[in-house]
Write a protein that binds this DNA or RNA. Structure first.
Lengths: 109, 109
DNA sequence: ATATTTTATCGTAATATAGCGATATTACAA
DNA sequence: TTGTAATATCGCTATATTACGATAAAATAT
């Protein structure tokens, strides 16, 4: 049927999948890389940098933002985006734990 | 148009996106968790464990395998899957570097 | 109020993904 | 060779994703 059956999986598996989805598109990876560089950048600048249209860039920004990884702030007419350092750290830990946990189970054999 | 424009992004961004895609579905996360537990398990057992049909499970296994994260080996009529520890380590490092690199750029400001 | 600038949303089209039943393939056993 | 068991592939449907042009909304400046 084509709908992911979230309910049959653990909270943790769903959480990891949700956050991995942020990074599962190269445009979003590029956006995060660029925002890391400039610290507080405009949608328009990002759009130019990654060479995607303004609407497409804005949509990707919303996806990352909905997951809680981005902060944004209006200054004048422009909206400045930056990475939420706390959330970024949490995200890193989640992935780290998953990798380590999987490794530790492997090495028991 | 709806096709991801891989060519406008860096190799690195594409690589991260490709590997994140493996984890972007909770069924695949659950499969990896389970394989870590049993170390050499059958498609059928995985299918029962994660409560998805055998064809669906097999397809997810192929996705993970194509990315190089799974090894498989026939013993009799059964195919035993296990995680490629080397590749798993590489994957972890790629993510780790990406997270750290992004953080270090943030802290410079 | 009007114009300008920046970002967000809407509508739409093309492609990708997730899932399953039916069937094919593969390997062993009798 | 025939049967059985395990896995892979095919064909299909439903939903999700990616992208863009057009347009709306928000904020400032004139």
């Amino acid at each position: 049927m084509g709908v992911t059956k979230r309910h049959i999986h653990s909270m943790r598996a769903n959480q990891i999948a949700d956050l991995a989805k942020i990074l599962s598109n190269p445009a979003r990876v590029a956006i995060i890389e660029y925002i890391g560089d400039c610290d507080g950048c405009l949608c328009q600048d990002i759009s130019e940098k990654i060479r995607l249209s303004q609407p497409t860039t804005s949509q990707h920004l919303q996806v990352i933002k909905r997951a809680g990884v981005l902060k944004s702030q209006f200054k004048g007419k422009a909206q400045y985006y930056s990475i939420d350092a706390r959330k970024w750290e949490q995200l890193q830990e989640l992935f780290y734990d998953f990798f380590e946990h999987t490794k530790s189970k492997m090495s028991e054999k």
